[in-house]
């Protein structure tokens, strides 16, 4: 399984396939950081480190990040079927379950490297331009260390959410061997979550809002308080991990029965 993951990582970098993730993410993360720097500069003139990075997540987290991640993950699985290179993997001594998990792991590692790399660059840039002596949330002052911890938790949660989205579209990719359908499914899931009747306070709606992986669309909502909401963070982490596990288990089962 780890060997397949290693081979997948090497394939993703050799094929320059990672650029499909790197370029749009770089555009959304880095450009968004720079834009907010200028907006703050034009406004009050106070450059708040936490606010700059926080705005990047608020703007991109609920839509662009999941869509980019979905395109990247589906590309990896569907292309193997399209180019019929899946035959090479099926002729290996690895079981189909190992192949499926290995590919998913490899893709997740590449996503992690690129996502965290870009955020690090953004944070370094923001740290250089911001006044790190006056970081605050509302009237509460934050130390540089506290700010970095918040950014790290926010980034880690978002990354876990994106990997969860990846497992969701990986599953649909394995079922349909088609790149469009999984992305449409994801879009429908996002839209379904945003349509008005779900905002009514019914038991089902509350349950979906609380326990489904689409909770990842609202990660930023739990952060604008002075105290870091560790319980909420833990809860979200568990929800994402559980969903990843379910999607991967079902995906493995589907992949095992896949015919060429």
């Amino acid at each position: 399984m780890f060997k397949i993951a290693k081979l997948e990582i090497s394939k993703l970098f050799r094929s320059k396939h990672y650029l499909k993730l790197l370029i749009p993410l770089a555009l959304f993360i880095l450009i968004s950081t720079v834009i907010h720097y200028f907006i703050m500069l034009e406004g009050t003139g106070d450059i708040n480190l936490f606010s700059i990075i926080y705005m990047v997540f608020i703007e991109n987290g609920p839509f662009f990040f999941p869509i980019i991640a979905a395109i990247f993950f589906t590309d990896v699985i569907v292309n193997e079927f399209k180019q019929k290179t899946i035959n090479i993997l099926f002729s290996s001594t690895f079981s189909r379950e190992e192949i499926f998990i290995g590919k998913f792991l490899g893709t997740s590692v590449v996503l992690t490297i690129i996502f965290m790399g870009l955020l690090t660059i953004s944070t370094i840039f923001a740290s250089l331009v911001a006044d790190i002596r006056s970081i605050s949330i509302g009237f509460f002052a934050l130390s540089y260390g506290e700010t970095l911890t918040r950014i790290l938790i926010l980034a880690a949660l978002t990354l876990l959410f994106l990997i969860c989205v990846g497992s969701y579209v990986f599953l649909f990719g394995a079922i349909t061997k088609n790149q469009v359908i999984p992305i449409v499914c994801l879009l429908l899931t996002i839209l379904f979550n945003g349509i008005p009747f779900l905002t009514y306070d019914s038991k089902i709606n509350t349950f979906i809002r609380k326990y489904s992986f689409v909770n990842g669309l609202y990660i930023t909502e739990i952060f604008p308080t002075y105290e870091i909401p560790y319980i909420d963070v833990l809860m979200l982490t568990m929800i994402f991990l559980l969903h990843i596990l379910i999607f991967i288990m079902v995906g493995m089962h589907v992949f095992k029965k896949r015919q060429v």
Partner: peptide, 25 residues
């Protein structure tokens, strides 16, 4: 086996493709 047309990764060189097949078995 070779069934129908050969399936190759277009971005790998022939040597890399062979090594990839060896790694898998």
């Amino acid at each position: 086996f070779l069934i129908e047309n050969p399936s190759l990764y277009p971005y790998l060189t022939g040597r890399q493709q062979l090594n990839y097949c060896i790694e898998l078995r």
